[in-house]
Nucleic acid binder design. Structure first.
Lengths: 264, 264
DNA sequence: GGTGGACTCTCCCCCAGGGGGAGCGTTCAG
DNA sequence: CTGAACGCTCCCCCTGGGGGAGAGTCCACC
């Protein structure tokens, strides 16, 4: 039996942290003296402690660590861990995007804001709609677009686009509509005809990977307030040149359109 | 002038977060109505808000964000940001190491523990010593080893090694000694002769990159308690095969030695 | 000129995953 | 037997937010 201090030295987990893990039922001491409250650990707990240590280094929440440790089947365990590695990958992607965006923002020679005010007429398109959590938008978009392309096929008359509820930008759930323009929108599965309402749009074009799009949003925001306008309704994006057209992200062009109206 | 809600929509920072940034003096509203307490922001603050947003996505602490924003010189600013990107890189390295270590720990066929009890005689070596924070050990080691190699040169009689205070493994500062064995230790700069005391060492060998070394520590811990021993004094490492010998990390061999004594 | 709804204010509590320290009890070797 | 080292619980602190209560404000519409 090892005292908590000895176990701490052997596992490189602090005494405090070990107590916390006991409290969280993550790593219970083999024996707890009922009269003194002293915790005693067994040698066989060292590997477990090390696994916990590694998982925590990967920022796996304590609850998930518990679930992984409780999983009796090594297959299940591996799957849970793979999930977290995937999460790390995603995080890495977001980090890279933030770095790119930051570099652009801090460029000493910011390009002038290039926004066009455009009156967009109403039109009917083939669409898929849904209410989606902001984290799931990308995956949902991919599925919806695949379904759209299958339904519309070669009858496409223009680049795809989408309309995104503002709630999505505030880390909430929101309504999403993705569409493909076509003369006779079919009704298949989730695909149905939908009317894209007429709107006054402040439009700017973002060139490059979609991850850097925030810069364009910033420009729109600046332009909108500088021109004494305000925003009404969901943001629209049109993927003028996208992954459907070329695999070179640097050539992608996304039109961002904010429905606006003059304030004064 | 924009209300906090409008500014929130334009920057994709939540109202709550904007208030927090005001409180932290990170992003003060252009105007605060003294009677109502209402915050009003200016358009020109949008780019600043976006920079903050990006930096926070990179997990830059608010205090550091403030320092970056306050830096008037773009050069200084770039340097501060470069520091944080370096930090991200380091973190990534640690993440990778944790993944490797985790994979090893969870391997279904853990290799049997291979620990040797060895009576090490005292010997005199060329050493550099210091008290170092646990984060700085690697950098300190690199500098000390370079100085040692310069001082000892071809008179080396064995692989380099080090002795590490246990405090270092508890995320604190501790004494570190790195050495090169040589018959006539010189005294140059920080390099000086030092006696490596005799000790009973529980020794195991770690093969591969140094990052996976925790597994060896775990084995030692298990062995030590299973053999009714306890630990006394700093941990020793001997870099039997290291970056000096081959650039292939898979071939590196590190001996980990814990000074132990029989308990019963 | 009201009024209602949307917006904003402050204040307090909550989360994870720890760290610092007070005040007191336990162990164990000299 | 005594003191140092170690252990215990308890409370407050940190970061960077989120939820919600209760009250005050703003503004467009009637």
């Amino acid at each position: 039996m090892l005292t908590i201090g000895e176990f701490s030295r052997l596992t490189h987990l602090s005494v405090r942290t070990l107590r916390r893990y006991h409290e969280a039922a993550l790593l219970d001491p083999a024996v707890v003296d009922e009269t003194t409250g002293y915790r005693y650990y067994g040698v066989e707990q060292i590997p477990t402690a090390q696994v916990i240590h590694r998982l925590r280094e990967l920022d796996v929440p304590l609850g998930d660590v518990q679930r992984i440790l409780r999983a009796p089947d090594p297959g299940v365990r591996a799957a849970l861990i793979a999930d977290h590695l995937q999460r790390l990958e995603d995080e890495l992607d977001r980090t890279r995007a933030a770095v790119v965006s930051l570099r652009r923002l801090l460029r000493p020679d910011p390009a002038p804001i290039d926004v066009e005010l455009r009156a967009e007429p109403a039109r009917t398109v083939a669409a898929v709609e849904g209410v989606v959590g902001h984290r799931d938008v990308e995956a949902w978009f991919a599925g919806a677009m695949a379904e759209l392309e299958a339904a519309v096929g070669a009858a496409v008359t223009g680049p795809p686009g989408g309309a995104y509820d503002n709630a999505l930008f505030e880390q909430e759930r929101g309504h999403v509509l993705v569409y493909l323009p076509t003369s006779a929108p079919p009704r298949t599965g989730r695909v149905h005809p939908a009317i894209l309402p007429a709107a006054e749009l402040a439009v700017t074009t973002h060139v490059g990977e979609h991850d850097g799009v925030e810069v364009a949003y910033g420009e729109l925001g600046t332009w909108v307030v500088e021109n004494a306008m305000s925003v009404a309704g969901p943001v629209r994006e049109v993927y003028v040149v996208g992954p459907r057209d070329t695999s070179d992200p640097a050539a992608w062009r996304t039109e961002i359109g904010w429905p606006v109206f003059r304030v004064t």
